[in-house]
Design a protein around this nucleic acid. Sequence first.
RNA 1: GCCGCUGUGGUGGAAUCGGCAGACACACCGGACUUAAAAUCCGUUGAUGGCAACAUCGUGCGAGUUCAAGUCUCGCCAGCGGCACCA
Length: 801
Amino acid sequence: MKYDFSQIEKKWQDIWDEKNVFAATNDYSKPKYYALVEFPYPSGQGLHVGHPRSYTALDIVARKRRLQGYNVLYPMGWDAFGLPTENFAIKNHIHPAIVTEQNVARFKQQLKSLGLSFDWSREINTTSPEYYKWTQWIFLQLYKKGLAYKKEMAVNWCTSCKVVLANEEVVNGCCERCGGQVVRKVKSQWMLKITEYAQRLLDDLDEVDYIERVKTSQRNWIGRSTGAEVKFDTTAGDQLLIYTTRPDTIFGATYMVISPEHPYLKTWADKITNMDEVVAYQEESSKKSDFERTEMAKDKTGVKLCGVAGINPATGKEIPIFVSDYVLMSYGTGAIMAVPAHDTRDWEFAKKFDLPIIEVVKGGDVEKEPFTDCATGVMVNSGLLDGLTVEAAKVKIIDWLKENGKGEPKVNFKLRDWVFSRQRYWGEPIPMVYCEKCGWVPLPESELPLKLPDCESFEQTDDGQSPLSKMTDWVNTTCPHCGGPATRETDTMPQWAGSSWYFLRYCDPHNDKELASKEALEYWCPVDWYNGGMEHTTLHLLYSRFWHKFLYDLGLVPNKEPYAKRTSHGMILGENGEKMSKSRGNVVNPDDIVREYGADTMRLYEMFIGDFEKSAPWSTSSIKGCKRFLDRVWALQDMVVEGDCYSKELESAFHKTIKKVSEDIETMKFNTAIASLMSLLNEIYDHKSINKAELATFLTLLQPFAPHIAEEMWELNKLGGMANAAKWPEYDEAKCVDSTVEIVVQLNGRIKARIVVPSAAAKEELLAAAKADPAIKAEIEGKNIVKEIVVPGKLVNIVVK
RNA sequence: GCCGCUGUGGUGGAAUCGGCAGACACACCGGACUUAAAAUCCGUUGAUGGCAACAUCGUGCGAGUUCAAGUCUCGCCAGCGGCACCA
């Protein structure tokens, strides 16, 4: 009988569907397991071979948990708002909703062809009004708690997409999506105060089980630093507030720098005698994109303010103030004290502008290079700080500044507030109304969802307004507060909005009274295991943690953190080792693989390809090896015999394999789990027969990886019920060991003999057996034994002189 | 520059605690079957020397600790990813 994978796979996919076997039940008395993968953006290209790597991995976990008796939630949905769909719609004059529908249908069919055990009855779509009603609702709660606010600010403007981008969407000064140039532009934007949660987002990382590199990335992104804010008197009669992480070096501050956007430049306008020069510099730097500013990082520019100077509060000396774009308005206070002796950037600037460099921490040669080490130096030229270590000096100077009303300790974060407006059509409308009399007024919750109106064309206006702004019927409305004429917000939400809470909706996806019932959330939360791409670490993952904490504060969700465990898979590269892309011509289409080799082979191969966490190149010849393995599994049916317990010869092999596969799934070592199944198969072939009990165990272990073939063989061999409803096999630690074991005998660390001994042999017996070996006996005769090392089960090492 | 990760045969990759380096595959080569090819099955395969048993070398490079190092310590080199004038 031939292994006809296409017929078998179709058959079982239909049966699973019909019987709804993977639906999570609402029986809240059972132990639950919530496995989650990132829901895809349904692009026009269809499924990428990278998607199934993550989906199959957690499908394996989900299937194993079901066999272990858990009520498993493994859901899937569509993160369908976003630019590519909108751009496609503009180009082809099709409504984005139709494009989305088509793409979703294709994705769904592709996912189903892989036999993934998703609970399709809980499918969600971020673009459906029943869903985005609650995205909008959460926004209103954020607004009501003062966490959503409107702000005029310099934003990242993509010159090609004509759209505002979040910092996270700008890569090397270019638009993450189209690669177009990004410049700074002042616009009025909705912002979310993620910075209010910065400390908690940082602290609570200690409580979750995320892989270390995810934690590190988030910590770096949040970028907490401690230091002090210090007030410097100025000759203009006011005070300039600066932020520093090195208050200990204050005696070495020989000048100050403020950002070109600093408001004091306006305040001081009539006192600055070279204002023309300053204004020219401001204009020059405003024209620079972030990219250019970074490009020119090596070459410092700036203008000295004539007519205004600062006074160093520690030394009482007058020091010049410069304006330079190496100081950013968006971090700290937009002003710094410059200590060229102990800061690389200040040192470069001082060298260029010929400013004094005063050493205040001993340990380097500050004329040659800045000395930035905090651990070894001792304070000098620093009055009351002299002789102290850097750490002690920090404490002392902050106390001194506090006592004299000159400064305060201060914590700063690199994390910025989240720019939440997009001048685009295909996103959730922001449920806010502007009234001349009342200002911004939130839409009453009863009017949600605020639906996206139908539109003829989806292009932005030339000045970068959302296409919605052209729809006057929709824009013009009445103020919910005073009833007077008002206009709707025409910006929409960014793509990250819908994905910031989607995992909650899966718990209760059809609820039209609340985003999910309390009961459902209490049962299913938190997500037990969430797998996804590293590229989402500082975007989606951080945003969703933020929203979750906010909902927790409102008492809507039961846990502080949304995900108990987060892992990340490596990328699948093209056969040539490069990233898969159309332009490189190395894209592999999963449909072709499923057609040619079958879904089971595809799943198995993607798990066998290498270390799950590392990237790995696609290999067409390796996939054939996985197909060969399944062919050999299928052929087991020719050697089935009766038997209801493991045969003596295979018993320990089975126990070892159960142990290995069980453990490896938990630690994401899917490749070695499969390798151990291959080894077991080889042993069965050597043994030339397999009984029914053994076959049942083998198929149950295989089922998470290759579910279709497992179901079919389960049925053909009448093993009872269905493979997906079997019980996960157990192993006995005592039976994992063979009765005898070969150990190595070394002489001075060199292998001289191998002896076979009972695995239970004691140290003394091992040593005696080793010494009795003829080769060893001859070698040690007449020599002085210095040391004897015995490691049971592994080796004996005899050191002689 | 900073942070993180990685470096093992021709290839993808294995190797709980420091204890037989190269599991499991792929590819190659040889053999069986076949008129032939594909498929399948069996076998060899880290390098060097040797008819052989065997010996020597071998986990990016250089030191060190140890009876024993892919694994630990120190110092380098290379590659990948992220952040980047964050005071």
